[in-house]
Every structure is written in C-alpha cells, then in structure tokens.
C-alpha cells in the first residue's frame, strides 16, 4: 500500500477494463514521472470526452452533436441500415469503404447470463426508425459469435413481418489463410455461403 494520492490513483486505474493491480501500479508511476504538460493534456482529454461526447439520437453512435457525422451526411444512402453491436464496429465497417448506407448501434448483444435481454438493447429505437418508408434493407452485422448470432436470430424474427429485406453478413474463410487450417465450423459456414463463380 502506498500513501494517499498514489494509492488512490492506482485504485482508480485498476478499475479500468484489462488493467490489473501490477499494470495500474506501472501506469501510476509512469504518470508520476511524466512531464506535467503531457499529463495536463491527458486530463483535458478525459474531461472533454465526458463533457462533449454523447450518443447520436438517431443511430446511437458516439457523437459530439445531437446527431452523428454519418446521420448528418446527405450523401449516405438512406435506404440501407447496417445494425452493429458497438460504436467501434461502425469504424470497422467504415474502414472497408464498401458500405455507403447508415448505421444503427444496438449497444451490445443479447446475453441472458449477464442479464442483457432484448429490452436492454436499442431494438425498440430500430423498429421506430423502420417507420420511415425510405428504408429498404437491414444488414445485420453483429459479431459472428454465439451472442451475436442469437441477437441476429431475434432481430430477423422481429423484422420478418415488416416486409423489409433483412440480410446477415457472410461467415467464412479469412482472406490470406490456408484452407487446411480452417476449423470445421468456419469451413462449414463457408460452404453454406458459397456463391456462383461465373458472373
């Protein structure tokens, strides 16, 4: 145990995800030894992010205004919505530069053991958005793990009666890998999702 401020800093850093007691101690001593100007910038960034950043009132993505930069952009296709679990998934899809539609961030995936059911996600907000007749397709881009698949199944069931095209991201082999190293689940999915090679 250290005295006062140092121990308080270690305790606070230790509450961050992925930071154990040793890492918290290392970070605390790095902060103690760092240039005061660098630490002031860090403190300002922490305060600013909590004061300025909020969630987009339309899609739930992080934004500094009431609506995010993607929802404000008139060049984005309003007929397609890509449903993702977290804001960081928006950035992953944006990096592909192949999707020009808009997003809807659910805020997680269905995980009953953790107490997260459909009511805890932004599914009601998605259904409200679908009242807009311009929307023609929903792309479900939840994670390809069990919670993500369960969320996709639930969404597909909810959206089945609305009459909008509902698609799911393909699962399969990673680009650059060898077929012999693929596990049977992924390879099975790749076979199911095969497409016509003759254009």
């Amino acid at each position: 145990m250290y005295e006062g401020a140092v121990q308080e800093l270690i305790d606070e850093l230790g509450r961050l995800p992925g930071i154990g007691p040793k890492s918290a101690q290392r970070l605390a001593f790095h902060i103690l030894e760092a240039d005061p100007e660098d630490i002031k910038r860090l403190v300002t960034a922490l305060v600013t992010v909590k004061e300025r950043v909020k969630f987009c009132s339309i899609c739930g993505n992080v934004s500094e205004q009431d609506t995010c930069i993607i929802c404000r952009d008139p060049r984005r296709d309003p007929t397609v919505i890509c449903v993702v679990e977290e804001s960081k998934d928006v950035q992953a899809v944006e990096r592909t530069r192949s999707f020009k539609g808009r997003y809807h961030v659910l805020g997680g995936a269905i995980n009953p053991i953790a107490g997260v059911g459909p009511e805890q996600l932004r599914i009601r907000e998605l259904l409200t958005r679908l009242n807009d007749s311009a929307i023609e397709e929903i792309i479900i881009a939840t994670d390809p793990n069990l919670e993500g698949e369960a969320t996709a199944t639930y969404l597909a069931r909810m959206l089945k009666t609305i009459g909008i095209t509902v698609t799911r991201l393909a699962s399969g082999l990673p680009v650059g890998g060898d077929l012999e190293y693929a596990d049977e689940v992924t390879l099975g999915r790749a076979f199911e999702g095969r497409r016509n090679a003759i254009a």
Partner: peptide, 25 residues
C-alpha cells in the same frame, strides 16, 4: 478438437437459445 457442435442449430431458434443458456448457467 470439436466433438459435438450444437450451437448453430440451437442459436437458429431464439427460444432454444434462451433455454440452452439457462441450462449452462
């Protein structure tokens, strides 16, 4: 090494998924 892959069939039905989660918990 996989010996039994039940996840895909279970998760394809949301009702089945909620039941399987309750069993594993």
């Amino acid at each position: 090494v996989s010996k039994g892959s039940y996840g895909r069939e279970i998760v394809a039905d949301y009702g089945c998924y909620t039941v399987a989660v309750a069993m594993t918990e």
